[in-house]
């Protein structure tokens, strides 16, 4: 299957949300105010209603009922509303089971949210100076979106052959995808996002999250790569062979991560994931 055919397939699997696309577009601008993002949400009645519904779910634990977008912004803040909007925008597509990777319903959504939470930890750890946290959060959330497309199209026979390769210990899961399909979930995901006009930084972070770019200039893919690793270590990763992920040694060295530093990051990631689960439990 060619990249174009994958993308055609992807459009059916992952419908793009107009408001989410507009917000993603805003993130690519040099400076974007909270007000601009709020304006987009306000124009989308369905999205606003969903934000209020999640805010009022008992898991959120708010004392007072939230009846308007302004009240939601007051109660949980701009950053939290932003996270919710992104999670809501992709939650329906991401909640589907992925038979090709043996992921049950909601498992992919949970993993994507955990990776987004981990990306924020990397941003706040001081390991990275660069793009804004919302950009990293979004890149973490979307980095495996290609799995949704590929996982739904694999035949049983392809899965059996890929599993045999991965379980032999010879290749990572993404390497097995490339061997079998001539492409992989990172490339398919990045192409899909490109077709939605998502900012280049996010496309890069998705495209290279399994082979992050350090030179000549360190790219956001370093953050998504580390976030992927941290999410695995702080709460697991669903699907068969999910630990067949190659850790990029040059990134580990460049960031000066030793086992002590790593354990600290895993603790912070766990905290971030638990917070995220509380906030998005109502989805």
């Amino acid at each position: 299957m060619t990249a174009a055919e994958w993308i055609a397939k992807a459009r059916g699997v992952v419908p793009s949300s107009e408001s989410a696309n507009r917000i993603l577009g805003l993130l690519g601008r040099p400076s974007v105010s909270n007000d601009e993002i709020v304006k987009v949400i306000r124009c989308d009645g369905v999205l606003t209603a969903k934000v209020l519904q999640v805010c009022n779910s008992p898991l959120m634990g708010l004392r007072q009922r939230v009846a308007s977008l302004d009240q939601a912004l007051l109660a949980i803040g701009h950053r939290e509303v932003f996270r919710l909007v992104m999670a809501i925008s992709y939650s329906a597509a991401m909640s589907a089971p992925i038979p090709g990777f043996a992921m049950a319903a909601k498992e992919f959504l949970r993993q994507s949210l955990a990776t987004a939470a981990a990306a924020e930890v990397v941003m706040e750890s001081g390991l990275w100076k660069g793009e804004e946290t919302p950009m990293a959060f979004t890149a973490g959330l979307l980095q495996d979106i290609g799995e949704l497309v590929i996982g739904g199209a694999l035949t049983m026979e392809m899965v059996a052959r890929m599993r045999a390769r991965v379980e032999s210990g010879e290749c990572s899961r993404i390497e097995a995808e490339r061997e079998m399909l001539g492409t992989d979930h990172a490339e398919v995901g990045a192409n899909l996002l490109k077709s939605w006009n998502v900012p280049e930084e996010i496309v890069e972070a998705v495209a290279n999250h399994h082979q992050p770019v350090l030179t000549p200039v360190t790219q956001l893919s370093v953050v998504t790569h580390l976030a992927d690793c941290l999410a695995h270590l702080a709460g697991g990763a669903p699907g068969w062979g999910s630990y067949a992920v190659r850790v990029c040694t040059p990134v580990v060295e460049a960031m000066g991560i030793d086992s002590e530093r790593l354990d600290g990051l895993v603790i912070a990631t766990r905290t971030s994931i638990e917070r995220m689960e509380r906030f998005t439990g109502g989805l």
Partner: peptide
Amino acid sequence: GAKMMDAKDIFSI
């Protein structure tokens, strides 16, 4: 105790 593929073994938590 699953293990990621890490040449330096740091991620072998």
